[in-house]
Design a protein around this nucleic acid. Structure first.
Length: 109
DNA sequence: TGGTTGACTAAGT
DNA sequence: CACTTAGCCAACC
C-alpha cells in the first residue's frame, strides 16, 4: 500500500466504514487507532468531507456518546433516525447504553 | 509559506 | 453541575 496517497482524512473514512452495524465509536478511538491520539479533532474535521463518501458518520460520536455532529446532517433528526434504525436508542442526543454499543477499532479491528 | 479552523478531549473554574 | 480554557494537529485557504 502507499499511504502517501491516502490523507489522514481517507484513513478516517476507511475506519469509519468498518464500524459494524448497530455499533458506534468515538472520534478519539479512531484517532488512536490511526496512531494520532491527539488528533481527535481531525477525525471530526475529516467527517466534514464524509458527505461525498460512503461513511456512516452517524455511527461516530464524541466519547460521551453524544450526537455532537447531528447538526451537520441534512435534517435535525436524520442522524438520530439512522442510529435508531440500527437498534441504538438515543435520547436527547445521548446514546443510551453507550458503553455496550461502543466499538473500539484498536481492540476489535 | 503560514495562519486559521474544528463533528475532540481533559482539566479547571 | 454547567461553562471555560487550553492542548492538540492535519487540512484548508
Amino acid at each position: 500500500m502507499k499511504p502517501e496517497t491516502l490523507s489522514f482524512f481517507d484513513k478516517v473514512y476507511a475506519v469509519a466504514r468498518q464500524i459494524p452495524f448497530g455499533r458506534v465509536t468515538s472520534y478519539g478511538a479512531i484517532a488512536i487507532y490511526l496512531g494520532a491520539a491527539k488528533s481527535a479533532r481531525m477525525v471530526g474535521y475529516a467527517m466534514n468531507g464524509s458527505h461525498s463518501k460512503d461513511v456512516p458518520a452517524h455511527r461516530v460520536v464524541n466519547r460521551k456518546g453524544l450526537l455532537t455532529g447531528k447538526y451537520h446532517f441534512e435534517g435535525t433528526n436524520l442522524m438520530l433516525q439512522l442510529l435508531e434504525n440500527e437498534g441504538i436508542e438515543v435520547i436527547d442526543n445521548q446514546i443510551q447504553n453507550f458503553e455496550a454499543k461502543f466499538w473500539d477499532p484498536s481492540k476489535e479491528l
